[in-house]
């Protein structure tokens, strides 16, 4: 083979040979990475070793965190952006995209995450909110954002603020899928209602949703969100993951469900397989064998109001 170039990757972007200009951080590029993650599993990892296990099991991205949500719940106190060194070590250790969480409204944590070059920022209710009124204005950032939602209106508000990817919130750290199901059904229910709404009623619908008319019209036309939507918060087994896919998720986030299970490697790999073959019960049965016990979990219905993370941010 002949080498086509000796230029190192760090030499910067090439000049266009089609006469156009090189454009970075465009909407296409930001939303495009989420499109590449579809059909995949994004796993929470708290160490380099976890990150390697996740990548080896087939995670399409990892979320670098100090503690998984179940431990954040147990620890109490204020949950903040993870330590910069930890995130950087994980970025060094794997070739898949690395995401990291900033507190809701904490735009400086987001600026720091952009400065270290994470691939996606999750403005997350799992961390203690820094602003109880406003989310981050995500448009000026070069790094794309994913945000949580419980229904269509919340999703569209986050997209209007610049989120390039959405995840339904569920209830993180419980291992109980009921809230994930509720939020996914609410989201799709909202989309289906819009599809049946006549044009002249769209302004009122937008007002009810607390969302922009332009986005409401786009959703009606597309029959789905204009960005990729994953499921999060409570997925603990391959069956849970396939359930969320059958309910209309483009992929799943698994937080505590992997590294709080009996056999993380097997559980991780089984969930990845379940997401690919989410409609095939034979495969789902096969991957559900020999994976040990899932995380013990905690019923989301029994959580006192102050421990319900999904209620943070609206």
């Amino acid at each position: 083979m002949t080498s086509t170039s000796t230029t190192p990757a760090s030499a910067g972007l090439p000049s266009a040979n089609g006469g156009g200009k090189v454009a970075t951080a465009t909407w296409t590029v930001k939303a495009g990475l989420a499109q590449m993650l579809k059909g995949g599993v994004i796993m929470d990892v708290v160490t380099v070793e976890h990150a390697r296990i996740a990548e080896e099991a087939g995670a399409c991205a990892v979320m670098a965190l100090e503690r998984v949500p179940a431990d954040i719940r147990a620890a109490g106190g204020v949950a903040r952006m993870s330590r910069v060194e930890l995130i950087e070590q994980i970025m060094e250790a794997v070739t898949v995209p690395v995401m990291a969480k900033a507190r809701i409204g904490h735009f400086v944590e987001a600026q720091i995450l952009e400065a270290i070059g994470v691939d996606y920022i999750d403005e997350s209710e799992v961390l203690t909110p820094a602003d109880d009124q406003h989310h981050i204005d995500k448009h000026p950032f070069k790094v794309p954002f994913v945000c949580g939602c419980r229904d269509l209106g919340e999703a569209l508000r986050r997209i209007a603020e610049g989120a390039a990817m959405i995840r339904t919130k569920g209830e993180a750290g419980t291992g109980d899928v009921v809230e994930a199901v509720r939020h996914m059904r609410a989201l799709w229910g909202g989309i289906r209602r819009l599809q049946l709404t006549p044009e002249e009623e769209l302004p009122a619908a937008a007002k009810d949703l607390g969302a922009s008319l332009a986005l409401v019209r786009e959703v009606k036309q597309l029959g789905r969100l204009p960005v990729v939507n994953f499921s999060a918060g409570g997925v603990a087994t391959p069956a849970d993951a396939a359930l969320m896919m059958q309910l209309g998720a483009d992929g799943v986030f698994v937080g505590s469900g992997i590294f709080k299970s009996d056999q993380p490697e097997r559980m991780a790999s089984a969930i990845v397989r379940a997401v690919t073959h989410y409609r095939d019960p034979q495969v789902l049965a096969a991957v559900s064998r020999g994976i040990g016990d899932p995380m013990r979990g905690r019923s989301a219905a029994g959580l006192p109001a102050e421990e319900q993370l999904a209620a943070r941010g609206n």
Binding site: A9, A16, G20, T24, T28, G32, L33, G117
Partner: peptide, 17 residues
Amino acid sequence: DRNAFGRQLDSFEFDLN
């Protein structure tokens, strides 16, 4: 070469012949 242009921050679009 994988990730030959860098991370997501370096993702780009342009016109190509």
